[in-house]
Simulated assay, not measured.
Amino acid sequence: MWNSHSTAGPLSLTAQIQTYPGGGGDEIGGYVARPGGDGPRPGLVLVIHMPGFDEFYFEFAERLARHGYDVICPDLYSRFGHGLPDDVFAKVRAEGHVHDDSAVADLAAAREWLLALPTSNGKVGILGSCSGGRHALLTASLVPGFDAVVDLWGGGVVAAPEDATPARPVAPIDYTERLDAPLLGLFGNEDQSPTPAQVDLHEARLKAAGKDYEFHRYDGAGHGFTYYHTPLYRQEQAMDAWEKMFAFLSEKLGAR
């Protein structure tokens, strides 16, 4: 899937921060990246990681758009105010993090926004990394109608009852039976959140429930191994993960 475009084109996209009706009808921010052309094409809800609404995620959205998806990346921290991403995240962390019910409502609303686009082919997936992987899986488990979900090393999918917080009252694994979207999970075997044992437990629960899923695990990689702007980056594993992600999304949603 990498370098799958023709050098003759056409290849174009538009990308910008804009507002959309989030959970409860609140106007919240989102980074929207869309290919040129009339469609029809699938949509993707891209879920921010814990560092927040940052430049890496803007580039993530644009890469997905170049592969034929209408993408919206909601700013789940909108209600905490605005500023530099690191400063906003510090405020979010100090106030106990975004609550699951708020995130799920905003992400469900993003799905509806994508489906209402004149370019929509009627299919929408959801994906994210780190806390975004957790929120993606949680949302796909609680909100019917997503056509695919990608969890990139989502920490906290498996959690003990004593680890519950007001923001995270239930671990997503406890909603496994409600998941009706096919799931792709990508994990590093050196990660500590989730640990390989937690990934094993999640896989066992999915298998027992008869869910449509595929997990891939990478030796020599830990958390955030596709983050090319950090020391966590592992080039070989990251490129294989991109290939698997694009193949999965193409199979479940369409586009190239």
Rank of each mutant, 00 (worst) to 15 (best):
C73W: 02
I48L: 13
P85Q: 12
G81A: 10
P85S: 13
L44R: 09
L44G: 07
F53Q: 06
E59L: 15
L76T: 00
E62K: 15
S78D: 01
E59C: 12
C73I: 09
P40D: 05
G68E: 02
G96A: 13
D70N: 13
V104P: 00
A105R: 07
R41S: 02
H99W: 02
R93F: 13
H49Y: 07
R63W: 02
L84I: 00
L46M: 14
L76I: 09
A105G: 07
I72V: 14
V47S: 06
H99Q: 08
R79W: 00
R66L: 15
G68T: 01
G81N: 07
P42C: 14
V98W: 00
H99C: 01
A90V: 01
A103Q: 01
G83L: 09
R41L: 06
V45Q: 07
Y57T: 12
G68M: 07
K91G: 08
F53G: 03
C73G: 11
G96L: 10
E62C: 11
D86C: 01
H99M: 04
I72W: 01
L76Y: 02
V45H: 06
D75C: 07
L44F: 12
E95Q: 15
I72Y: 00
I48F: 05
A105Y: 04
F53K: 08
P42Y: 13
Y57K: 13
H49C: 11
P42W: 10
A105V: 05
V104E: 10
V88E: 02
V92T: 06
D75M: 04
D87M: 08
E59P: 00
G43S: 13
V92K: 06
Y77A: 12
R63N: 13
H97I: 05
V92Y: 03
V104A: 12
D101S: 11
G83Y: 05
R79C: 05
